[in-house]
Amino acid sequence: MFYWLLKFVVLGPVLKLLFRPDVRGLSHLPRNGPVILACNHLSFSDSIFTPLVVDRRVTFVAKAEYFTGKGIKGWLMRQFFSGTGTIPVDRSGGKAAQAALDTLLRVLREGGVAGIYPEGTRSPDGRLYRGKTGVARLVLESGAVVVPVALLNTDEIQPTGTLMPKVKRVRMRFGAPLDFSRYAQAKGDRFVERAITDEIMFELMAMSGREYVDQYAVKPKPLSSRLDAAVPVER
């Protein structure tokens, strides 16, 4: 209930008025059944704009720290992420990635919509990076179709490291559903998982117009971190 109140009564009208979403291809999104929204990742605000324009509830996962902050800021952040359907995942352990996938898989098995960033992190420079195969495992385990979502300019609206977004029209594109049912019997096949992931990333490349880099995205480290890597420091 709080999700719908926050999205359609409180935040939704305000955000749509300010950022005037230019959305194309939204009719590609099935109205029922499990769907994976596979998005490129340019900005923190991607997880705000994507659910904003979709009538169905979209579930993303986010690090648990967003839900444990203190004070007014912590409370507001916790209410926002809880209200928009985001689920906290503890990323401190080695099994954190699997915990995130298990959470999204549960959503899909219930016939819902799961949002995922196949790159695994925000692009450090605006280019599109190699996708991780977790999205393919979700496809094979759930049987869900994949709708590629290209966010075209959220890195201009809220560049990495900035708190307040610029008021600028957000542009998004939804692609035709990708059906991978032909691979239904190939669960656990790493070659199939890579083929599915690469097909999704190809669609995102074509839709976004971003340069593709065939390697995993790594956030640029400050000089001090690079020095620490060269000279190990006890912490």
Results as ranks from 00 to 15, higher is better:
residue 86 T to D: 02
residue 62 A to R: 04
residue 112 G to Q: 09
residue 108 L to K: 07
residue 91 R to V: 06
residue 77 M to Y: 01
residue 64 A to W: 03
residue 114 A to E: 06
residue 66 Y to D: 04
residue 101 L to G: 08
residue 78 R to L: 00
residue 85 G to K: 09
residue 85 G to P: 08
residue 104 L to E: 11
residue 107 V to N: 01
residue 115 G to N: 03
residue 81 F to R: 03
residue 77 M to R: 13
residue 88 P to G: 03
residue 95 K to I: 00
residue 98 Q to I: 10
residue 100 A to R: 04
residue 78 R to A: 10
residue 116 I to G: 03
residue 64 A to P: 00
residue 63 K to L: 06
residue 77 M to W: 01
residue 111 G to H: 09
residue 104 L to H: 11
residue 115 G to L: 07
residue 100 A to F: 05
residue 73 K to R: 14
residue 77 M to H: 00
residue 65 E to W: 08
residue 109 R to K: 15
residue 94 G to H: 06
residue 92 S to C: 01
residue 109 R to H: 15
residue 99 A to I: 00
residue 102 D to S: 13
residue 103 T to D: 02
residue 87 I to H: 04
residue 104 L to I: 06
residue 110 E to D: 15
residue 74 G to K: 10
residue 108 L to G: 09
residue 107 V to F: 01
residue 86 T to G: 01
residue 64 A to E: 15
residue 73 K to G: 00
residue 67 F to P: 10
residue 108 L to W: 06
residue 108 L to P: 09
residue 63 K to R: 15
residue 105 L to K: 14
residue 74 G to M: 11
residue 99 A to E: 14
residue 70 K to H: 11
residue 112 G to T: 07
residue 109 R to S: 07
residue 108 L to Y: 12
residue 85 G to I: 10
residue 106 R to M: 02
residue 71 G to V: 06
residue 76 L to F: 15
residue 89 V to R: 07
residue 106 R to H: 12
residue 81 F to S: 01
residue 107 V to I: 12
residue 79 Q to W: 13
residue 73 K to D: 00
residue 102 D to Y: 02
residue 94 G to A: 13
residue 100 A to W: 02
residue 88 P to T: 01
residue 74 G to F: 12
residue 104 L to W: 08
residue 111 G to N: 04
residue 61 V to E: 08
residue 68 T to A: 13
residue 68 T to L: 08
residue 88 P to K: 03
